[in-house]
């Protein structure tokens, strides 16, 4: 018996990939969450600002509509502000330095057999596994 979480994971994953395929083939753009947001907040993507805003509006609105219909799933997000701020800074700086995150390097990169995408994915996964071990099992802070 396959756990339902895995099935929902696969269905949701197909939707994520479908969104990336739509954005690539119709709009001619790479669906990379950190790139779309980064270009908006740091001013480097000023000429495509409205497009970026609309994408993010959809990204925020759809989960709300889903939640109102089906019920909001828990985020289980920590309420420790120190961890939130440090984690946010690391994610923001890291994804801009590497020029991509789980969607750009992971979904769009791996599917193109991009060496950069695959290397980036191995690096953030490796760092994530190690960080989880250190912060959860050694230090017990998360």
């Amino acid at each position: 018996m396959i756990p339902t979480d895995w099935i929902f994971g696969l269905i949701g994953g197909l939707m994520i990939g479908g969104a990336a395929a739509l954005y690539l083939l119709v709009s001619g753009r790479i669906l990379g969450a950190s790139g779309i947001l980064g270009g908006l907040v740091d001013g480097s993507g000023r000429d495509t600002m409205i497009e970026r805003c609309v994408f993010i509006a959809g990204l925020i609105a759809a989960p709300v509509l889903y939640g109102l219909t089906v019920g909001f799933p828990a985020t289980n997000l920590t309420s420790n502000p120190v961890i939130l701020v440090i984690a946010g800074l690391f994610v923001g700086i890291g994804t801009r330095m590497a020029n991509g995150c789980t969607s750009g390097h992971g979904v769009c990169g791996i599917s193109r057999f991009s060496v950069r995408g695959i290397v980036a994915t191995l690096c953030y996964l490796g760092a994530g596994f190690v960080a989880m071990w250190v912060f959860r099992h050694m230090l017990g802070v998360i």
Binding site: S34, G94, T95, G128
Partner: peptide, 25 residues
């Protein structure tokens, strides 16, 4: 930049469990 940046990202991702897409969602 690619290796170091992805490393930083992985640490932040582990700490809070959010990457940029879900952080907005």
């Amino acid at each position: 930049q690619l290796v170091l940046g992805s490393g930083f990202f992985g640490v932040g991702w582990a700490l809070a469990g959010l990457c940029p897409g879900p952080a907005m969602a």
